[in-house]
Design a protein around this nucleic acid. Structure first.
Lengths: 157, 157
DNA sequence: CGATTTATGTCAACACCTTGCCATATTAAT
DNA sequence: ATTAATATGGCAAGGTGTTGACATAAATCG
């Protein structure tokens, strides 16, 4: 029976965790930059791409509320107010008041929004291929599993 | 010999890549929020934490230039102008003009900055432990390897 | 039914991040 | 040595993210 405490990780494990979070930090900075460049010709940002993707999913034809988008994308409602405003101005989405509940708004993809989503797919595929070359699907699945666990841990109170 | 093209990934692999980037997107949003809360009592942000960490490394006692920080953190010089200005106002770092090159500034940790870095360590350890519970070190190392490759792919022109 | 509580979305203020542009300083070229 | 090219850091504008405060609408409670 080891005498080491189970309360705290040992220091080498702490270094690993530290490196993991730092790599996540670096990766997101460079993904944001590179992804925005890849989408620049379509006049949308990576965040707007994520909203288009959310609204283009099966079963979302009827639209989503701001709260649902907030839960799905893990950003605040207040942040979505700005993003959705810009996307509305760009003609990608529409905001419709729910007749059953005057508070909530249904966010739906416009025809133009759907067309843009389709037209960016080749650029997205090229982006994935370029950034993930040399990384096999198994590694990607393991990282997805880790991120799922990480997100689950952070979501609980 | 398979007849499939090697130019493009198959569609199931595309789904995996898509999920990977979306999980990264979600994870960073929630890490930013949760991490900022964990550091709120010390009046620093996750970004300022990353700058403190960079300047606290072995061999950085003499300080780093803005360009070196930019290369290390993978954010733009212009972004650092703002972050470093706030950290200077807070007394965490100092900007000193390099006498050998009047253009460049040496960014160094102040005594207060070093103390803050030490004092946040327990909160950081708790944060790591809470967010990574149930995730073993091997998984973390695999994710670090993937992120290293991803960053390498994106850094090349 | 009226009063309180909860839910939804927005506005405001601030930090962070990018790109484009610029002033200054150093280096390279002629 | 003067001119041109390059390097360094900062300023400005705009999108993205957070929290706090708020108006309105719906649900709950007395």
């Amino acid at each position: 029976m080891p005498a080491t405490s189970t309360r705290h990780q040992d220091s080498s494990h702490h270094d690993t965790s530290n490196k993991l979070f730092f790599r996540l930090f670096q990766a997101v900075n460079i993904i944001h930059r590179t992804g925005t460049q890849a989408l620049k010709q379509f006049d949308i940002s990576t965040q707007q791409w994520s909203v288009l993707g959310a609204l283009s999913r099966e079963g979302c034809e009827g639209g989503m509320t701001v709260n649902e988008l907030s839960d799905y994308l893990l950003v605040s409602r207040q942040n979505l107010t700005g993003v959705l405003g810009r996307m509305e101005r760009g003609g990608y989405i529409a905001r419709q008041v729910n007749p059953r509940d005057q508070r909530s708004r249904h966010i739906t993809l416009t025809a133009r929004g759907g067309e843009v989503w389709q037209s960016i797919q080749p650029a997205i595929a090229d982006f994935y291929e370029a950034s993930l070359q040399g990384i096999d699907e198994g590694q990607q699945l393991q990282t997805i599993a880790l991120l799922d666990d990480l997100i689950g841990n952070m979501k609980r109170p």
